[in-house]
Design a protein around this nucleic acid. Structure first.
Length: 726
RNA sequence: GGACACUUAGCUCAGCGGCAGAGCACUGCAUUCACAUUGCAGGGGUCGUAGGUUCAAAUCCUACAGUGUCCACCA
């Protein structure tokens, strides 16, 4: 046997080991069955990788996700389960498109409209491909044991079929509908945005009090007020009791005398401002809802580029930003401006995907109706019978309430319920080009929905694309072949665990539950494990502008993937954010080296060891073995409970402070003595061998390398598929 | 406005009814010996505050304070 090097060198080791794993084919459960490593009848264990967006490179959050999932996967694989970890990437529609638009703008000063749909899309695809390759490279660097033969992409042919099939089925059920509704319009990116993609920003803005006939109304946005002809107050407000619902009054307004109608509505806050407001239903959600309740007329004031329409009289064609001061001036002249409050702060909606300030608009869009009743079409979902009346909302609540899906940590269940109770219909159409084009064709007033275009002439496909979360909502089963009947689907769905950041609980986790329960009558996963965000030393979010980004690849190059993984696991409770300092990574690099030297010591002292069947163990030897057994059991229990941080820490502590500091020190004497030498050799060799297996899910590279060098006789095998020590 | 989480050593955090713990940092000593990416020893904490439950509370309950996050239609 070759003597081990004096220190562990991850740079020299890791790529070689990863290649060895890939070459063995053992990431693929089918290969394991074929090689009789596991039984075909073994329990399946499956995780579908949350697909990283093809918008650039991986960050520390991705690295943490990969570490957690790889630990679970390697553990279950070693336990002999039929283990599948399926990789893929997400086209991330709006995020990717906006990124390429930015690059285009910077480089060529062009917009996507200058290029045209086809040319622009080919540029996006090029960008997506480069991102994809960089991401896959990084994923492998982290040691992730993913089955690459099953890799998927949210925009590839199979996933497209799944998307179209899902859309068609939901359309036929009436769960997908087209309607004129108020949506979040981003005038900058020229697209709608879902409620969840909005980022609210605090802003101080002047608040204007305007004379509106006998009333005083308050507004932060006078430039939307041109068409206001309804004045709303609370039905119980005594100050305005003399005005009756539906009563009409004449008053002087921006462009002359108008007739305004009195409306009484509960949604008005009597304590805010004067307790009276006028409404702009076309450009404000609350106002829209009031207008719907009272069946009021709605009028568009602002166009899709943010310019005023003819209703604004002499202000027509002026952008709202420029119009405001001009209008305020006019109001002053007409004596309609009573006062300005300059201390007012409010929140403005912005598009979190790199867009501008949201301007609500009433537009014709596609929606998923979450409240509509339908008869449940499947059997086999506990608690809901085939034919039973239900809604998508009820399904989403039901499976979590009945624990068919368990969310860890538990406190997120409450947040999940609350979100669903407030959920509105989901706007799924986007006016962008990169994504799944909506599978709907029009010809005059006729409409066709299906998985393939109509064969006759003259049909025009809807130019819009689907919200990216529509396709990722199908991810757990579209990756397994659905809508085709496949072996993979039968074997691996529902998946065992969905591991992701708590920040996309609503975006994604909820949508997967919606899609899966409706389309196939199964939960998408049994357990949701939510990890926290990786932050910098001071607890700030990592961002390019702050310059505090720690790149996982840099850490891997400097300290090794094993060290990087441990730094992301130890100290990270599920759902809690992790503060990461480079010193910690360094500390775990030292740990890998410590383990290396433990192995080196044992190797140097067991070269003459001949295996004995019944070694004469001293009481100290027995104690070592029984303590080790306790550690094994504890680690196993902790992993089963998803307390990976504890499990890793237990192993860290055992390795360094029990095995190295106590047992090895003690062994130096014991090994000197000819009578006790051989039994101790037996103990050390056995503890090391099993310890490497226990540590393997956490630090796969160093353990594999040591195991290869010290214990593996059959070079066709590797530690990755050895059995978990019982 | 509502909800949730956190508050334990200088820093990061674990412990979640039974003698206050770990890593890093700090101090002193050791070392051609598996490892300086090391070892041994040590200093350092009224477990946010105030009550309550209990034989026993960092741990369970209540209130309060600070910090953070999420949600919400205050024009």
């Amino acid at each position: 046997m070759k003597e081990l090097a004096r220190a562990y060198n991850p740079q020299e080791t890791e790529d070689r080991i990863y290649q060895l794993w890939e070459k063995s084919g053992f990431f693929n459960p089918d290969v394991l069955i074929k090689n009789k490593v596991i039984k075909k009848t073994a329990n399946p264990f499956s995780i579908v990788l949350p697909p990283p967006n093809v918008t650039g490179a991986l960050h520390m959050g991705h690295a943490a996700m990969l570490a957690v999932e790889d630990i679970l996967i390697r553990y279950h694989r070693m336990k002999g389960e039929r283990t599948l970890w399926l990789p893929g990437t997400d086209h991330a529609a709006i995020a990717t498109e906006s990124k390429v638009e930015q690059i285009l703008q910077k480089k060529e000063g062009e917009t996507r409209h200058d290029l045209g749909r086809e040319k622009f899309l080919s540029q996006v695809q090029q960008f997506a491909k480069e991102s994809h390759d960089a991401i896959i490279h990084q994923v492998k660097k982290m040691g992730a044991s993913l089955d690459w033969s099953r890799e998927a992409y949210t925009l590839d042919t199979e996933r497209s079929l799944a998307v179209k099939t899902a859309f068609e089925r939901m359309y036929k059920e009436g769960l997908v509908y087209r309607g004129d509704r108020i949506v979040n319009w981003d005038p900058k990116m020229q697209t709608t945005v879902s409620d969840d993609e909005i980022e609210w920003k605090e802003e101080q803005a002047p608040f204007y009090y305007l004379k509106y006939g006998p009333f005083t109304i308050g507004t932060a946005r006078p430039e939307t007020k041109f068409g206001d002809k309804y004045v709303v107050m609370h039905p119980k407000d005594k100050r305005y009791a003399k005005y009756k619902q539906g009563e009409k009054i004449q008053l002087e307004w921006i462009s002359g005398i108008i007739s305004a109608t009195i409306i009484k509505d509960d949604s008005v806050d009597m304590d805010f401002g004067t307790g009276v407001m006028t409404i702009t239903p076309w450009h404000d959600r609350t106002d829209f809802e009031i207008a719907e309740r009272h069946n009021l007329e709605k009028e568009q004031i602002i166009d899709q580029k943010g310019k005023l329409l003819s209703i604004a009289g002499e202000f027509q064609g002026i952008h709202i930003k420029k119009a405001r001061p001009l209008l305020v001036e006019k109001l002053k002249e007409k004596g309609l401006l009573k006062k300005i409050d300059k201390t007012y702060t409010h929140r403005i909606a912005t598009n979190s995907r790199g867009g501008g300030i949201i301007e609500p608009q009433i537009m014709r869009q596609w929606f998923i109706d979450v409240k509509k009743e339908f008869s449940f079409p499947h059997t086999g979902l506990a608690g809901i019978k085939k034919g039973q009346k239900t809604t998508l909302k009820k399904l989403m609540l039901h499976v979590v309430k009945t624990k068919q899906v368990e969310i860890l940590p538990k406190r997120f269940e409450k947040i999940y319920f609350h979100w669903i109770l407030n959920l509105r219909d989901w706007c799924i159409s986007r006016q962008i080009w990169f994504g799944h084009q909506i599978p709907v064709w029009y010809k005059g007033k006729d409409i066709k929905v299906g998985t393939a275009p109509p064969t006759e002439q003259g049909w025009q496909q809807d130019p819009d694309t689907l919200d990216t979360w529509f396709s990722s909502g199908l991810w757990t089963f579209s990756t397994l072949g659905w809508p085709k009947k496949t072996k993979d689907f039968d074997t691996y769905h529902p998946t065992s665990v969905l591991e992701t950041g708590y920040d996309i609980l609503f975006f994604w986790v909820a949508r997967m539950i919606l899609m899966s329960t409706y389309l196939i009558g199964e939960v998408p996963f049994r357990t949701v494990y939510l990890h926290g965000l990786v932050r910098d030393e001071q607890g700030r979010k990592m961002s390019k502008s702050l310059g505090n980004v720690i790149d996982p690849l840099t850490m891997v190059e400097k300290y090794g993937a094993d060290a990087t993984r441990l730094s992301l696991i130890i100290g990270a409770a599920p759902g809690n954010d992790l503060k990461l300092a480079e010193d910690r990574v360094k500390g775990y690099r030292n740990f890998a080296n410590k383990l290396w030297n433990i192995a080196r010591f044992i190797q140097m002292n067991t070269e003459d060891y001949k295996e004995e069947k019944n070694p004469k163990l001293s009481s100290k030897d027995t104690k070592i073995l029984s303590d080790f057994k306790k550690t094994k059991q504890e680690v196993t229990k902790l992993i089963e409970e998803y307390r990976l941080s504890q499990a890793a820490e237990t192993l860290y502590h055992y390795t360094w402070h029990t095995l190295a500091d106590k047992i090895l020190e003690d062994s130096k004497e014991v090994l000197e003595n000819k009578k006790t030498r051989s039994a101790r050799q037996y103990v050390l060799s056995m503890v090391l061998q099993e310890l490497l297996r226990l540590l393997h899910p956490f630090t796969p590279f160093v353990t594999e390398e040591l195991y290869q060098q010290l214990f593996l006789k059959d070079k066709k095998k590797n530690l990755m598929i050895e059995s978990w020590p019982a």
